[in-house]
Design a protein around this nucleic acid. Structure first.
Lengths: 285, 285
DNA sequence: GCAAAAGTGTTCCATGTACACCCATGT
DNA sequence: ACATGGGTGTACATGGAACACTTTTGC
Protein backbone atom coordinates (compact mmCIF):
# COMPACT_ATOMS: atom_id res chain seq x y z
CA UNK A 1 0.00 0.00 0.00
CA UNK A 2 1.29 3.37 -1.00
CA UNK A 3 1.04 6.41 1.21
CA UNK A 4 2.87 9.65 1.89
CA UNK A 5 5.34 9.08 4.73
CA UNK A 6 5.22 11.40 7.73
CA UNK A 7 7.44 11.94 10.71
CA UNK A 8 5.33 11.72 13.85
CA UNK A 9 6.56 13.40 17.00
CA UNK A 10 5.27 14.13 20.46
CA UNK A 11 5.77 17.45 22.20
CA UNK A 12 5.10 17.91 25.87
CA UNK A 13 4.06 21.08 27.64
CA UNK A 14 5.09 20.32 31.23
CA UNK A 15 3.82 22.81 33.77
CA UNK A 16 4.69 23.31 37.39
CA UNK A 17 4.46 26.00 40.02
CA UNK A 18 7.65 27.49 41.40
CA UNK A 19 7.84 30.60 43.59
CA UNK A 20 4.08 31.04 43.28
CA UNK A 21 4.56 31.35 39.55
CA UNK A 22 3.07 29.22 36.81
CA UNK A 23 5.98 27.87 34.78
CA UNK A 24 6.66 25.61 31.84
CA UNK A 25 9.65 23.48 30.98
CA UNK A 26 11.38 24.51 27.77
CA UNK A 27 14.52 23.34 26.04
CA UNK A 28 17.02 25.53 24.32
CA UNK A 29 17.53 24.22 20.82
CA UNK A 30 21.06 23.18 20.00
CA UNK A 31 20.64 22.78 16.24
CA UNK A 32 18.96 24.33 13.26
CA UNK A 33 16.33 25.38 12.60
CA UNK A 34 15.53 27.82 15.39
CA UNK A 35 18.97 27.26 16.94
CA UNK A 36 19.13 28.89 20.34
CA UNK A 37 15.39 29.38 20.58
CA UNK A 38 13.29 27.78 23.25
CA UNK A 39 11.09 24.85 22.31
CA UNK A 40 8.94 22.21 23.92
CA UNK A 41 10.64 18.98 24.89
CA UNK A 42 9.71 16.15 22.57
CA UNK A 43 10.88 13.74 19.94
CA UNK A 44 10.00 11.07 17.44
CA UNK A 45 7.52 8.37 18.21
CA UNK A 46 9.22 5.00 17.95
CA UNK A 47 7.88 2.32 15.59
CA UNK A 48 6.37 0.21 18.35
CA UNK A 49 5.24 2.83 20.74
CA UNK A 50 1.86 4.27 21.57
CA UNK A 51 1.58 8.04 21.49
CA UNK A 52 1.15 8.41 25.20
CA UNK A 53 4.01 6.03 25.89
CA UNK A 54 6.23 8.15 23.68
CA UNK A 55 5.24 11.26 25.59
CA UNK A 56 5.92 9.55 28.92
CA UNK A 57 9.29 8.36 27.71
CA UNK A 58 10.32 11.82 26.55
CA UNK A 59 9.11 13.28 29.81
CA UNK A 60 11.21 10.89 31.78
CA UNK A 61 14.26 11.43 29.60
CA UNK A 62 14.06 15.21 29.76
CA UNK A 63 13.21 15.66 33.42
CA UNK A 64 14.59 12.65 35.21
CA UNK A 65 11.30 12.41 37.08
CA UNK A 66 10.02 8.98 37.95
CA UNK A 67 7.13 7.76 35.86
CA UNK A 68 3.94 8.32 37.79
CA UNK A 69 5.03 11.54 39.42
CA UNK A 70 3.22 13.58 36.81
CA UNK A 71 -0.15 13.85 35.20
CA UNK A 72 -0.15 13.52 31.41
CA UNK A 73 -2.95 14.08 28.92
CA UNK A 74 -3.22 14.50 25.19
CA UNK A 75 -3.88 17.98 23.87
CA UNK A 76 -4.21 17.83 20.08
CA UNK A 77 -2.39 17.05 16.86
CA UNK A 78 -0.71 19.78 14.84
CA UNK A 79 0.12 19.16 11.22
CA UNK A 80 0.56 22.35 9.25
CA UNK A 81 2.71 21.33 6.24
CA UNK A 82 5.00 24.27 6.93
CA UNK A 83 5.46 23.67 10.63
CA UNK A 84 8.89 22.13 10.24
CA UNK A 85 11.02 23.25 7.29
CA UNK A 86 13.05 20.05 7.31
CA UNK A 87 10.33 17.53 6.61
CA UNK A 88 6.65 16.77 6.76
CA UNK A 89 5.80 16.26 10.41
CA UNK A 90 2.73 15.81 12.50
CA UNK A 91 3.17 16.35 16.18
CA UNK A 92 0.84 15.09 18.86
CA UNK A 93 1.02 17.55 21.71
CA UNK A 94 0.53 16.57 25.32
CA UNK A 95 0.25 18.62 28.45
CA UNK A 96 1.52 17.50 31.79
CA UNK A 97 1.78 18.82 35.31
CA UNK A 98 3.98 17.89 38.22
CA UNK A 99 4.42 19.04 41.78
CA UNK A 100 8.11 19.77 41.73
CA UNK A 101 11.00 19.53 39.34
CA UNK A 102 14.53 18.71 40.26
CA UNK A 103 16.84 21.54 39.26
CA UNK A 104 16.81 21.34 35.48
CA UNK A 105 18.86 18.30 34.72
CA UNK A 106 22.47 19.11 33.99
CA UNK A 107 24.48 17.40 31.26
CA UNK A 108 23.41 15.37 28.29
CA UNK A 109 20.79 16.29 25.73
CA UNK A 110 18.70 18.34 28.04
CA UNK A 111 21.61 20.50 29.11
CA UNK A 112 19.71 23.66 28.29
CA UNK A 113 16.41 23.08 30.05
CA UNK A 114 14.69 26.05 31.63
CA UNK A 115 11.62 26.67 33.74
CA UNK A 116 10.03 29.71 32.15
CA UNK A 117 7.08 31.73 33.48
CA UNK A 118 4.04 31.08 31.34
CA UNK A 119 2.91 34.69 31.21
CA UNK A 120 5.94 35.66 29.17
CA UNK A 121 4.77 33.32 26.44
CA UNK A 122 1.13 34.30 26.72
CA UNK A 123 1.96 37.95 26.37
CA UNK A 124 4.01 37.22 23.28
CA UNK A 125 7.20 38.63 24.79
CA UNK A 126 8.90 35.29 24.35
CA UNK A 127 8.63 33.56 21.00
CA UNK A 128 9.18 29.83 20.76
CA UNK A 129 10.46 27.63 17.96
CA UNK A 130 8.13 26.09 15.36
CA UNK A 131 4.43 26.43 16.21
CA UNK A 132 5.12 25.90 19.88
CA UNK A 133 3.66 29.26 20.94
CA UNK A 134 0.33 28.10 19.70
CA UNK A 135 0.65 24.72 21.37
CA UNK A 136 1.53 26.30 24.68
CA UNK A 137 -1.35 28.72 24.36
CA UNK A 138 -3.75 25.88 23.72
CA UNK A 139 -2.33 23.86 26.60
CA UNK A 140 -2.69 26.72 29.05
CA UNK A 141 -6.31 27.22 28.09
CA UNK A 142 -6.94 23.54 28.47
CA UNK A 143 -5.39 23.40 31.93
CA UNK A 144 -7.28 26.45 33.13
CA UNK A 145 -10.45 24.81 32.02
CA UNK A 146 -9.61 21.45 33.55
CA UNK A 147 -9.10 23.08 36.92
CA UNK A 148 -12.80 23.85 36.96
CA UNK A 149 -14.01 20.31 36.60
CA UNK A 150 -11.31 18.02 37.94
CA UNK A 151 -8.91 17.76 40.85
CA UNK A 152 -5.81 18.07 38.70
CA UNK A 153 -4.82 21.18 40.63
CA UNK A 154 -3.79 18.81 43.40
CA UNK A 155 -1.16 17.38 41.07
CA UNK A 156 0.75 20.62 41.44
CA UNK A 157 0.98 19.88 45.15
CA UNK A 158 2.78 17.22 47.18
CA UNK A 159 0.62 14.16 47.92
CA UNK A 160 -0.81 15.74 51.06
CA UNK A 161 -1.49 19.44 50.92
CA UNK A 162 -3.23 22.17 52.86
CA UNK A 163 -6.31 23.94 51.66
CA UNK A 164 -4.31 27.12 51.30
CA UNK A 165 -1.66 25.46 49.17
CA UNK A 166 -4.31 24.17 46.84
CA UNK A 167 -6.03 27.52 46.74
CA UNK A 168 -2.77 29.18 45.81
CA UNK A 169 -2.50 26.81 42.86
CA UNK A 170 -5.88 27.92 41.56
CA UNK A 171 -5.08 31.55 42.18
CA UNK A 172 -1.76 31.30 40.43
CA UNK A 173 -3.02 29.52 37.34
CA UNK A 174 -6.24 31.46 37.03
CA UNK A 175 -4.58 34.65 38.11
CA UNK A 176 -7.61 35.43 40.26
CA UNK A 177 -8.02 35.75 44.03
CA UNK A 178 -10.42 33.24 45.56
CA UNK A 179 -12.35 33.62 48.78
CA UNK A 180 -10.53 31.53 51.41
CA UNK A 181 -13.72 30.74 53.26
CA UNK A 182 -15.64 29.52 50.28
CA UNK A 183 -12.64 27.60 49.03
CA UNK A 184 -12.42 25.90 52.38
CA UNK A 185 -15.97 24.69 52.00
CA UNK A 186 -15.29 23.57 48.45
CA UNK A 187 -12.50 21.31 49.63
CA UNK A 188 -14.43 20.04 52.63
CA UNK A 189 -17.74 19.40 50.88
CA UNK A 190 -16.75 18.40 47.38
CA UNK A 191 -16.78 14.76 48.40
CA UNK A 192 -13.55 14.22 46.51
CA UNK A 193 -10.83 15.48 48.80
CA UNK A 194 -10.16 13.53 51.96
CA UNK A 195 -8.36 14.48 55.16
CA UNK A 196 -4.83 13.12 55.00
CA UNK A 197 -3.73 10.81 57.78
CA UNK A 198 -1.61 12.93 60.10
CA UNK A 199 2.08 12.31 60.47
CA UNK A 200 3.38 13.99 57.36
CA UNK A 201 3.87 12.67 53.86
CA UNK A 202 5.68 9.66 55.23
CA UNK A 203 2.44 8.33 56.64
CA UNK A 204 0.87 8.16 53.22
CA UNK A 205 1.73 4.52 52.74
CA UNK A 206 -1.35 3.81 54.83
CA UNK A 207 -3.77 1.04 53.93
CA UNK A 208 -5.62 2.20 50.84
CA UNK A 209 -8.87 0.90 52.23
CA UNK A 210 -9.20 4.08 54.26
CA UNK A 211 -9.11 6.81 51.67
CA UNK A 212 -10.97 4.90 48.99
CA UNK A 213 -14.76 4.41 49.00
CA UNK A 214 -17.32 6.36 46.97
CA UNK A 215 -15.82 7.43 43.68
CA UNK A 216 -17.69 10.30 42.02
CA UNK A 217 -19.63 9.43 38.91
CA UNK A 218 -17.45 9.24 35.85
CA UNK A 219 -20.37 9.55 33.47
CA UNK A 220 -19.47 12.95 32.14
CA UNK A 221 -15.88 12.08 31.36
CA UNK A 222 -14.73 13.48 28.09
CA UNK A 223 -12.28 12.06 25.66
CA UNK A 224 -9.30 13.79 27.13
CA UNK A 225 -10.35 12.71 30.54
CA UNK A 226 -10.62 9.17 29.48
CA UNK A 227 -7.01 9.43 28.46
CA UNK A 228 -6.49 10.79 31.95
CA UNK A 229 -8.03 7.76 33.51
CA UNK A 230 -5.71 5.52 31.63
CA UNK A 231 -2.74 7.62 32.61
CA UNK A 232 -3.79 7.26 36.19
CA UNK A 233 -4.19 3.55 36.00
CA UNK A 234 -0.69 3.25 34.61
CA UNK A 235 0.69 5.45 37.33
CA UNK A 236 -1.09 3.31 39.85
CA UNK A 237 1.29 0.44 39.38
CA UNK A 238 4.37 2.60 39.75
CA UNK A 239 5.96 2.86 43.18
CA UNK A 240 5.85 6.34 44.64
CA UNK A 241 7.50 5.79 48.00
CA UNK A 242 11.01 6.32 46.68
CA UNK A 243 10.15 9.78 45.37
CA UNK A 244 12.08 12.77 46.62
CA UNK A 245 10.70 14.25 49.86
CA UNK A 246 8.00 16.31 48.15
CA UNK A 247 9.76 19.48 47.07
CA UNK A 248 8.03 22.53 48.48
CA UNK A 249 6.13 24.87 46.27
CA UNK A 250 7.59 28.21 47.22
CA UNK A 251 11.25 28.68 46.62
CA UNK A 252 13.02 30.50 49.47
CA UNK A 253 10.97 29.16 52.40
CA UNK A 254 7.31 29.82 52.98
CA UNK A 255 6.83 32.01 56.06
CA UNK A 256 4.60 29.77 58.13
CA UNK A 257 2.31 31.75 60.42
CA UNK A 258 -1.15 31.33 61.82
CA UNK A 259 -3.06 28.20 62.62
CA UNK A 260 -1.32 24.97 61.67
CA UNK A 261 -3.12 23.63 58.62
CA UNK A 262 -4.63 20.21 58.44
CA UNK A 263 -3.64 18.41 55.32
CA UNK A 264 -5.82 17.00 52.59
CA UNK A 265 -5.40 14.68 49.68
CA UNK A 266 -7.21 13.23 46.71
CA UNK A 267 -7.96 9.55 47.41
CA UNK A 268 -4.98 7.56 46.14
CA UNK A 269 -3.57 10.81 44.83
CA UNK A 270 -5.46 10.33 41.58
CA UNK A 271 -7.20 13.15 39.76
CA UNK A 272 -10.98 12.95 39.96
CA UNK A 273 -13.93 14.58 38.37
CA UNK A 274 -15.70 17.12 40.52
CA UNK A 275 -19.42 16.63 40.96
CA UNK A 276 -19.88 20.39 40.63
CA UNK A 277 -17.34 22.54 38.84
CA UNK A 278 -15.48 25.24 40.71
CA UNK A 279 -16.39 28.34 38.76
CA UNK A 280 -13.86 31.01 38.05
CA UNK A 281 -14.70 34.59 37.28
CA UNK A 282 -15.06 35.17 33.58
CA UNK A 283 -13.08 38.40 33.64
CA UNK A 284 -9.30 38.14 33.40
CA UNK A 285 -7.94 41.64 32.81
CA UNK B 1 17.47 13.16 9.10
CA UNK B 2 16.37 9.65 9.93
CA UNK B 3 12.99 8.88 11.43
CA UNK B 4 10.42 6.08 11.51
CA UNK B 5 7.90 6.68 8.72
CA UNK B 6 4.22 6.75 9.60
CA UNK B 7 1.03 6.80 7.60
CA UNK B 8 -1.10 9.69 8.80
CA UNK B 9 -4.81 9.57 8.20
CA UNK B 10 -7.86 11.54 9.17
CA UNK B 11 -11.12 9.95 10.24
CA UNK B 12 -14.32 11.92 10.52
CA UNK B 13 -17.26 11.23 12.78
CA UNK B 14 -20.06 13.11 11.02
CA UNK B 15 -23.25 13.40 13.02
CA UNK B 16 -26.69 14.52 12.02
CA UNK B 17 -30.25 14.21 13.23
CA UNK B 18 -32.75 12.31 11.15
CA UNK B 19 -36.22 11.25 12.29
CA UNK B 20 -35.51 12.71 15.72
CA UNK B 21 -32.62 10.28 16.03
CA UNK B 22 -28.97 11.05 16.56
CA UNK B 23 -27.09 9.40 13.71
CA UNK B 24 -23.59 9.04 12.38
CA UNK B 25 -22.30 8.50 8.87
CA UNK B 26 -20.44 5.23 8.42
CA UNK B 27 -18.96 3.51 5.42
CA UNK B 28 -19.08 -0.17 4.72
CA UNK B 29 -15.56 -1.37 4.10
CA UNK B 30 -14.96 -2.88 0.69
CA UNK B 31 -11.52 -4.35 1.39
CA UNK B 32 -9.52 -6.14 4.03
CA UNK B 33 -9.06 -5.87 6.89
CA UNK B 34 -12.52 -5.64 8.43
CA UNK B 35 -14.11 -6.19 5.02
CA UNK B 36 -17.85 -5.60 5.26
CA UNK B 37 -17.64 -3.90 8.65
CA UNK B 38 -18.68 -0.33 9.19
CA UNK B 39 -15.99 2.28 9.62
CA UNK B 40 -15.61 6.01 9.83
CA UNK B 41 -15.04 7.84 6.57
CA UNK B 42 -11.47 9.01 6.22
CA UNK B 43 -8.24 8.67 4.34
CA UNK B 44 -4.60 9.61 4.02
CA UNK B 45 -3.41 13.12 4.58
CA UNK B 46 -1.77 14.41 1.42
CA UNK B 47 1.81 15.66 1.49
CA UNK B 48 0.87 19.31 1.26
CA UNK B 49 -2.30 19.38 3.24
CA UNK B 50 -3.12 20.58 6.71
CA UNK B 51 -4.95 18.10 8.93
CA UNK B 52 -8.18 20.03 8.95
CA UNK B 53 -8.04 20.54 5.20
CA UNK B 54 -7.67 16.81 4.76
CA UNK B 55 -10.69 16.20 6.94
CA UNK B 56 -12.72 18.76 5.00
CA UNK B 57 -11.69 17.19 1.71
CA UNK B 58 -12.68 13.73 2.83
CA UNK B 59 -15.95 15.07 4.15
CA UNK B 60 -16.76 16.66 0.84
CA UNK B 61 -15.74 13.57 -1.11
CA UNK B 62 -17.79 11.20 1.00
CA UNK B 63 -20.94 13.25 1.42
CA UNK B 64 -21.13 15.54 -1.55
CA UNK B 65 -22.00 18.36 0.81
CA UNK B 66 -20.72 21.81 -0.02
CA UNK B 67 -17.82 23.01 2.08
CA UNK B 68 -19.17 25.29 4.74
CA UNK B 69 -22.39 23.39 5.30
CA UNK B 70 -20.93 21.54 8.25
CA UNK B 71 -19.10 22.26 11.45
CA UNK B 72 -15.77 20.48 11.82
CA UNK B 73 -13.48 20.25 14.83
CA UNK B 74 -10.52 18.14 15.81
CA UNK B 75 -11.07 15.43 18.40
CA UNK B 76 -7.76 13.73 19.14
CA UNK B 77 -4.99 11.62 17.66
CA UNK B 78 -4.99 7.85 17.98
CA UNK B 79 -1.78 5.93 17.47
CA UNK B 80 -1.84 2.51 19.05
CA UNK B 81 0.82 0.52 17.14
CA UNK B 82 -1.68 -2.30 16.66
CA UNK B 83 -4.56 -0.19 15.45
CA UNK B 84 -4.05 -1.09 11.80
CA UNK B 85 -2.55 -4.49 11.00
CA UNK B 86 -1.27 -3.34 7.62
CA UNK B 87 1.10 -0.61 8.68
CA UNK B 88 2.02 1.86 11.36
CA UNK B 89 -0.62 4.56 11.29
CA UNK B 90 -1.60 7.54 13.33
CA UNK B 91 -5.05 8.89 12.71
CA UNK B 92 -6.22 12.33 13.62
CA UNK B 93 -9.91 12.07 14.36
CA UNK B 94 -12.35 14.89 13.72
CA UNK B 95 -15.97 15.27 14.58
CA UNK B 96 -18.44 17.15 12.44
CA UNK B 97 -22.10 17.95 12.41
CA UNK B 98 -24.45 19.01 9.67
CA UNK B 99 -28.11 19.86 9.37
CA UNK B 100 -29.09 17.47 6.64
CA UNK B 101 -27.49 14.87 4.43
CA UNK B 102 -28.47 14.13 0.89
CA UNK B 103 -29.52 10.51 0.55
CA UNK B 104 -26.24 8.68 1.06
CA UNK B 105 -24.40 9.29 -2.15
CA UNK B 106 -24.88 6.50 -4.63
CA UNK B 107 -22.09 5.18 -6.83
CA UNK B 108 -18.35 5.56 -6.59
CA UNK B 109 -16.19 4.94 -3.57
CA UNK B 110 -18.77 5.81 -1.05
CA UNK B 111 -21.35 3.44 -2.48
CA UNK B 112 -21.90 1.83 0.89
CA UNK B 113 -22.52 4.83 3.11
CA UNK B 114 -25.07 4.51 5.89
CA UNK B 115 -26.61 6.77 8.47
CA UNK B 116 -26.56 4.71 11.64
CA UNK B 117 -28.19 5.54 14.99
CA UNK B 118 -25.52 6.42 17.51
CA UNK B 119 -27.06 4.49 20.37
CA UNK B 120 -26.39 1.20 18.64
CA UNK B 121 -22.68 1.96 18.78
CA UNK B 122 -22.80 3.31 22.31
CA UNK B 123 -24.54 0.20 23.56
CA UNK B 124 -21.93 -1.98 21.93
CA UNK B 125 -24.47 -3.76 19.76
CA UNK B 126 -22.69 -2.61 16.65
CA UNK B 127 -18.93 -3.03 16.46
CA UNK B 128 -16.92 -0.92 14.07
CA UNK B 129 -13.66 -1.57 12.24
CA UNK B 130 -10.27 -0.70 13.77
CA UNK B 131 -10.49 1.40 16.92
CA UNK B 132 -13.42 3.34 15.55
CA UNK B 133 -15.77 2.36 18.38
CA UNK B 134 -13.54 4.21 20.74
CA UNK B 135 -13.26 7.21 18.47
CA UNK B 136 -17.02 7.44 18.09
CA UNK B 137 -17.48 7.11 21.82
CA UNK B 138 -15.04 9.93 22.44
CA UNK B 139 -16.67 12.07 19.77
CA UNK B 140 -20.14 11.61 21.22
CA UNK B 141 -18.94 12.62 24.66
CA UNK B 142 -17.26 15.64 23.20
CA UNK B 143 -20.36 16.76 21.33
CA UNK B 144 -22.61 16.29 24.34
CA UNK B 145 -20.26 18.45 26.31
CA UNK B 146 -19.96 21.10 23.62
CA UNK B 147 -23.72 21.50 23.55
CA UNK B 148 -23.48 22.89 27.05
CA UNK B 149 -21.15 25.73 26.27
CA UNK B 150 -21.55 26.59 22.61
CA UNK B 151 -24.27 27.06 20.04
CA UNK B 152 -23.21 24.12 17.90
CA UNK B 153 -26.61 22.53 18.43
CA UNK B 154 -27.87 25.08 15.94
CA UNK B 155 -25.64 23.48 13.32
CA UNK B 156 -27.97 20.49 13.34
CA UNK B 157 -30.74 22.82 12.20
CA UNK B 158 -31.34 24.78 9.01
CA UNK B 159 -29.96 28.33 9.10
CA UNK B 160 -33.16 29.65 10.67
CA UNK B 161 -34.88 27.42 13.18
CA UNK B 162 -37.63 27.50 15.75
CA UNK B 163 -37.00 27.26 19.45
CA UNK B 164 -38.72 23.91 19.52
CA UNK B 165 -36.54 22.53 16.73
CA UNK B 166 -33.45 23.53 18.62
CA UNK B 167 -34.80 22.11 21.83
CA UNK B 168 -35.46 18.82 20.12
CA UNK B 169 -31.81 18.71 19.09
CA UNK B 170 -30.69 19.01 22.69
CA UNK B 171 -33.23 16.49 23.85
CA UNK B 172 -32.22 14.03 21.17
CA UNK B 173 -28.50 14.24 21.77
CA UNK B 174 -28.66 14.43 25.53
CA UNK B 175 -31.53 11.99 25.65
CA UNK B 176 -33.19 14.16 28.28
CA UNK B 177 -36.42 16.14 28.25
CA UNK B 178 -35.97 19.88 28.70
CA UNK B 179 -38.53 22.33 30.02
CA UNK B 180 -39.97 24.16 27.01
CA UNK B 181 -40.55 27.33 28.95
CA UNK B 182 -37.09 27.57 30.39
CA UNK B 183 -35.57 26.65 27.07
CA UNK B 184 -37.50 29.47 25.48
CA UNK B 185 -35.93 31.90 27.89
CA UNK B 186 -32.52 30.43 27.28
CA UNK B 187 -32.80 31.14 23.58
CA UNK B 188 -34.32 34.57 24.07
CA UNK B 189 -31.93 35.79 26.76
CA UNK B 190 -28.67 34.12 25.89
CA UNK B 191 -27.64 37.13 23.85
CA UNK B 192 -26.33 34.83 21.16
CA UNK B 193 -29.37 33.76 19.23
CA UNK B 194 -31.13 36.41 17.18
CA UNK B 195 -34.61 36.54 15.70
CA UNK B 196 -34.38 35.58 12.06
CA UNK B 197 -35.66 38.07 9.53
CA UNK B 198 -39.03 36.76 8.44
CA UNK B 199 -39.55 35.50 4.93
CA UNK B 200 -37.99 32.08 5.21
CA UNK B 201 -34.41 30.98 4.65
CA UNK B 202 -34.29 32.87 1.39
CA UNK B 203 -34.24 36.13 3.28
CA UNK B 204 -31.06 35.18 5.05
CA UNK B 205 -28.87 37.02 2.59
CA UNK B 206 -29.73 40.16 4.52
CA UNK B 207 -27.11 42.82 5.27
CA UNK B 208 -24.80 41.31 7.85
CA UNK B 209 -24.68 44.59 9.72
CA UNK B 210 -28.00 43.71 11.30
CA UNK B 211 -27.31 40.38 12.95
CA UNK B 212 -23.76 41.16 13.94
CA UNK B 213 -22.92 43.46 16.87
CA UNK B 214 -21.83 42.35 20.34
CA UNK B 215 -19.96 39.08 20.10
CA UNK B 216 -19.75 37.22 23.41
CA UNK B 217 -16.38 37.15 25.06
CA UNK B 218 -14.11 34.56 23.53
CA UNK B 219 -11.76 34.57 26.50
CA UNK B 220 -12.59 31.11 27.70
CA UNK B 221 -12.14 29.43 24.35
CA UNK B 222 -10.36 26.16 24.60
CA UNK B 223 -8.03 24.61 22.14
CA UNK B 224 -10.68 22.69 20.33
CA UNK B 225 -12.78 25.76 20.18
CA UNK B 226 -10.02 27.74 18.70
CA UNK B 227 -9.97 25.19 15.93
CA UNK B 228 -13.67 25.85 15.74
CA UNK B 229 -13.11 29.52 15.22
CA UNK B 230 -10.82 28.84 12.35
CA UNK B 231 -13.26 26.41 10.83
CA UNK B 232 -15.86 29.10 11.05
CA UNK B 233 -13.70 31.71 9.44
CA UNK B 234 -13.01 29.41 6.54
CA UNK B 235 -16.68 28.65 6.13
CA UNK B 236 -17.31 32.36 6.12
CA UNK B 237 -15.84 32.81 2.68
CA UNK B 238 -17.81 29.97 1.15
CA UNK B 239 -21.11 30.78 -0.49
CA UNK B 240 -24.09 29.17 1.18
CA UNK B 241 -26.91 30.46 -0.97
CA UNK B 242 -26.58 27.65 -3.50
CA UNK B 243 -27.08 25.02 -0.83
CA UNK B 244 -29.99 22.64 -1.11
CA UNK B 245 -33.23 24.00 0.32
CA UNK B 246 -32.43 23.05 3.91
CA UNK B 247 -33.56 19.48 4.25
CA UNK B 248 -36.04 19.12 7.06
CA UNK B 249 -35.10 17.38 10.25
CA UNK B 250 -37.87 14.85 10.59
CA UNK B 251 -38.27 12.42 7.80
CA UNK B 252 -41.93 11.84 6.94
CA UNK B 253 -43.23 15.36 7.50
CA UNK B 254 -43.40 17.15 10.80
CA UNK B 255 -47.03 17.53 11.93
CA UNK B 256 -47.25 21.31 12.23
CA UNK B 257 -49.87 22.39 14.72
CA UNK B 258 -50.26 25.18 17.22
CA UNK B 259 -48.92 28.70 17.08
CA UNK B 260 -46.68 29.37 14.12
CA UNK B 261 -43.19 29.50 15.52
CA UNK B 262 -40.98 32.49 15.10
CA UNK B 263 -37.59 31.56 13.76
CA UNK B 264 -34.20 32.18 15.26
CA UNK B 265 -30.64 32.03 14.08
CA UNK B 266 -27.08 32.32 15.24
CA UNK B 267 -25.57 35.53 13.84
CA UNK B 268 -24.01 34.67 10.50
CA UNK B 269 -24.77 31.05 11.18
CA UNK B 270 -21.53 30.70 13.11
CA UNK B 271 -21.23 28.75 16.34
CA UNK B 272 -20.65 30.93 19.36
CA UNK B 273 -19.64 30.49 22.93
CA UNK B 274 -22.45 30.81 25.42
CA UNK B 275 -21.92 33.30 28.20
CA UNK B 276 -23.54 30.84 30.59
CA UNK B 277 -23.58 27.13 29.88
CA UNK B 278 -26.86 25.33 29.48
CA UNK B 279 -26.65 22.64 32.11
CA UNK B 280 -27.88 19.15 31.50
CA UNK B 281 -28.94 16.78 34.21
CA UNK B 282 -26.07 14.63 35.34
CA UNK B 283 -28.11 11.43 35.36
CA UNK B 284 -28.42 9.53 32.08
CA UNK B 285 -29.86 6.11 32.90
C1' DG C 1 -0.14 42.02 72.30
C1' DC C 2 -0.36 42.07 67.52
C1' DA C 3 -0.25 40.22 62.91
C1' DA C 4 -1.24 36.63 59.91
C1' DA C 5 -3.37 32.77 58.38
C1' DA C 6 -6.90 28.78 59.18
C1' DG C 7 -11.38 27.81 59.43
C1' DT C 8 -16.70 28.63 60.43
C1' DG C 9 -21.25 31.00 60.20
C1' DT C 10 -24.42 33.77 58.00
C1' DT C 11 -26.63 36.76 54.84
C1' DC C 12 -27.86 38.09 50.28
C1' DC C 13 -28.69 37.48 45.53
C1' DA C 14 -28.44 35.29 40.96
C1' DT C 15 -29.81 31.44 38.57
C1' DG C 16 -32.04 27.22 37.67
C1' DT C 17 -36.42 24.52 38.16
C1' DA C 18 -40.99 23.43 38.15
C1' DC C 19 -45.33 24.37 36.78
C1' DA C 20 -49.50 27.07 35.90
C1' DC C 21 -51.30 29.64 32.46
C1' DC C 22 -52.37 32.18 28.03
C1' DC C 23 -52.16 32.29 22.85
C1' DA C 24 -52.50 31.04 18.04
C1' DT C 25 -53.42 27.91 14.72
C1' DG C 26 -55.06 23.53 12.09
C1' DT C 27 -58.53 20.18 11.84
C1' DA D 1 -64.67 23.98 19.39
C1' DC D 2 -60.85 21.82 20.85
C1' DA D 3 -56.53 19.70 20.71
C1' DT D 4 -51.82 20.80 20.15
C1' DG D 5 -47.82 22.93 20.69
C1' DG D 6 -45.64 27.87 21.12
C1' DG D 7 -44.60 31.11 24.41
C1' DT D 8 -44.96 33.84 29.15
C1' DG D 9 -45.32 34.57 34.28
C1' DT D 10 -44.14 33.34 38.63
C1' DA D 11 -42.93 31.11 42.96
C1' DC D 12 -39.57 28.31 45.13
C1' DA D 13 -35.14 26.02 45.97
C1' DT D 14 -30.33 25.99 45.47
C1' DG D 15 -25.84 27.37 45.29
C1' DG D 16 -22.36 30.79 45.04
C1' DA D 17 -20.31 35.45 46.65
C1' DA D 18 -19.18 38.36 50.15
C1' DC D 19 -17.93 39.20 54.57
C1' DA D 20 -17.95 39.10 59.64
C1' DC D 21 -16.07 36.46 63.13
C1' DT D 22 -13.36 32.99 65.98
C1' DT D 23 -9.14 30.32 66.60
C1' DT D 24 -4.35 29.38 66.63
C1' DT D 25 0.22 30.32 66.03
C1' DG D 26 4.85 33.30 65.25
C1' DC D 27 7.08 37.38 66.42
Amino acid sequence: MNYPPFAVTVDIALFTIEDDTFKILLIERGGDPYRGDLALPGGFVLPDEDLEAAAARELEEETGLAEGSWHLEQLAAYGDPARDPRMRTVTVAFWAITAGLPRPRGGGDAAAAHLVPVDGIESGDLRLAFDHDRIVGDAVKRIRSRLETTTIAAQFCPPAFTVAELRRVYETIWNTPLDPGNFQRFVRDSGVFRPAPSGGPGALAAPSSVALESAPSLERLESGQEVMRRAIDDAESAPSSDAEPSMDLSGPRQQRRGRPASRWMVPEGRPRLLARPLRRKTGDP
